[in-house]
Structure formats: C-alpha cells, structure tokens
Amino acid sequence: MYQYFEALLKKYGVTTYQVAKATGISTASFTGWKQGKWNFKPDKLQKIADYFGVPISYLLTGEMEEAVKETTLTAKDERDIAKDLDNIMAKLKGGEAGPASFEGGEIPEETQELFAQQLDIMLHHLKKINKEKYNPYKNKK
C-alpha cells in the first residue's frame, strides 16, 4: 500500500511531512507504514485519500475503482445563477451592498466597483454560454 502513497507524493510533488501536517497524522506513523510495521486504519487512510482527492481504494489497490463524480449544471441552474448575478449587480449599481459583504460589514466603495466589474464579466460569460448552448437557431442556414 505504501507504494501507492509514494506514487501520489511523486505525482503531486509533496513530501510526507506536508501530508502529515495537513492530515494530522504523525510523521512517525508514516515511517512505520513505510517500514511495514503497521497499516493505517480506514479513518486515517480516508484522510490521506481526501488529501490527494483519490478514493480510498486507490491507497489499498492502486486502482481507481470508484467512479469520479463530476458536477454538472443544468440549464435551470445556469439561468438561476445568471438571475442571481443580475440581482447582485442591480443592488451594487444602486449603491446597496445587498448580499455582498466582507466580514459582516459593508464593502468599501472601491472594492464594490472591482466586485461589480468581476460580476459583470462572469455574467457576460454565463449569458454567452447559455446563448451558445440553448440557441435553437445556431448553425441553421
């Protein structure tokens, strides 16, 4: 099992120390695992798997048995996001912070302007994607 862990270390360019620090598992535990003195219990293996974004089965077998689930947005999700962004933009342009705040306080005016610009860019791209995806007249001659 340790060889699969080593492959992940190499692939992601991290050290055992970095993994130990991030997972809360002692470096001594990793050393014992490497030397074959013991194997980790499932809860510790899960922490390691989560760190690398792999299924626990990879650490056990070296194979990706579990299918990786991809999150996809439906057309309704995309429309809802565009609507929410439109509402946020309207509030920002109207001088309201609305749902946008920083640490519970109002966003400084210069930051609001930058935020509004970024939202405008995101909204533009989202509308472009929606139009390209759902335009029934596209590619018709």
Rank of each mutant, 00 (worst) to 15 (best):
K10N: 06
I48N: 01
A82I: 15
F52K: 05
Y2D: 01
G13D: 04
Y51A: 09
K91N: 05
L85F: 13
L8P: 03
K69D: 13
I129L: 11
K131N: 12
F115T: 13
D50R: 03
I56E: 14
V54M: 06
F102P: 03
G98V: 09
E109S: 08
N39A: 08
K76V: 14
S26P: 04
D50G: 05
I121Q: 15
N87D: 04
F5G: 02
D120P: 00
I107G: 02
F102Y: 15
A90G: 03
K37S: 01
A116I: 04
T71L: 14
E6M: 09
L92Y: 03
Q35M: 13
D86I: 05
A20V: 08
T74F: 02
K37G: 01
T16V: 09
K11Y: 07
D120K: 01
K93W: 03
A100D: 08
Q18Y: 05
E66A: 04
A116M: 12
F102R: 11
G94I: 06
L8K: 08
T31V: 10
N130E: 07
N135Y: 03
L73W: 15
F30K: 02
A67G: 08
G94F: 03
E109L: 11
T61W: 01
T27L: 02
D77I: 05
E96Y: 15
I48K: 00
E66C: 02
K37Y: 07
Y51W: 12
W33M: 09
L9Y: 04
A28R: 00
N39V: 09
I107T: 05
K128W: 14
L114F: 13
G105N: 06
D77V: 03
Y4F: 11
T71C: 12
D50I: 07
Y134D: 07
T16Q: 15
E78F: 08
Q117H: 12
D120I: 00
D50E: 10
K138N: 13
Y137H: 13
P99Q: 15
V54I: 14
K91H: 04
Q3C: 11
H125E: 12
Y4K: 03
Y137C: 11
G53V: 11
S57R: 07
N139Q: 10
S29N: 12
Y2A: 02
Y4A: 04
D84V: 10
K128F: 15
K34I: 02
Y51I: 10
K140P: 00
S101Q: 12
A90K: 14
N139L: 12
S101A: 11
L9H: 08
M64R: 15
T111C: 03
F30Q: 00
N139C: 08
I48V: 11
L123E: 02
L59V: 01
Q118E: 09
V14H: 07
M64L: 08
L73P: 02
A7E: 15
N39Q: 11
P42C: 05
Q117E: 11
N139R: 07
F102S: 07
W38C: 06
G13S: 11
K127S: 06
A67Y: 14
T71N: 12
